[in-house]
Nucleic acid binder design. Structure first.
Lengths: 125, 125
DNA sequence: TTATCAGTTAGAGTATACTCTAAGTCAAGA
DNA sequence: TCTTGACTTAGAGTATACTCTAACTGATAA
């Protein structure tokens, strides 16, 4: 049981973003005190942790919202939920592959600056 | 020497995006025919290829524009250019690491659907 | 010569994902 | 009681990266 301030600090996500995530359904509704103030429990924190991880990997909010929606509809949506995860896994694998290619290209270019371009420039002085 | 239509097709980048990239300086100015029509040469195509790769890895346009700007200022900017590449390489490495973590988490969850959640649900029928 | 078609521009519009603002509520300490 | 400070909401604003629109030009085929 934690306040929005505590959760915001713990996960380094702004309070505005935490409210936004709840509003759009990226996480299920957070329990509230009698006066309407958010009181995050274990489950809510688990969702936040998951979404922080997924979002930091660039997984689209849209797909994650669908996942949460299905989750709240109950057990019988398990297969559909798994399908979403598989789709996103494939997309992510692809992205990582492309990024690895760019990383290789960057490293190649950096090496050329070190071994060719900068030495040549220095010699000319 | 190629038209914008050919280059657009070759790299699967819309003509609008090619013009946009040139306008904001993500690629150096493309040679023009006497009537002002773009006539892409080897160099221009090389820049497009590079930027397609960098952008598909999510490298910020801002940093790439700075790189192109320095490149056009001449040889003496080599060190500054290399610094940009190194910064972006470090950012990219970090991103790949985070994405790999998310990928692992996704695969773990998918496995749980296959081995626990879905079988449990099927048994209950 | 006229229409068609690919090209040109500036600038407005869109999608995604926040981020901020204004106006208000509620509980606790001075 | 008053004020302070953390919380609430709806809705407007922002950043990034395109994407589209309108209006125009210039070369070529009928």
């Amino acid at each position: 049981m934690a306040t929005i301030a505590e959760v915001s600090k713990k996960y380094d996500i702004s309070q505005a973003t935490l409210r936004y995530y709840e509003k759009i359904g990226l996480i299920p509704p957070v329990p509230r005190s009698k006066s309407g103030i958010r009181d995050y429990d274990e489950k809510s924190c688990g969702w936040i942790e998951l979404m922080k991880c997924m979002r930091s990997a660039g997984i689209q909010i849209e797909a994650l919202i669908e996942y949460v929606k299905l989750f709240q509809e109950g057990e019988h949506t398990a297969k559909a939920r798994k399908d979403i995860l598989v789709d996103q896994r494939d997309i992510l694998e692809d992205k990582i592959k492309r990024m690895q290619e760019s990383l290789d290209k960057l490293n190649y270019k950096i090496d050329r600056y070190d071994t060719v371009i900068i030495p040549k420039m220095e010699k000319r002085r």
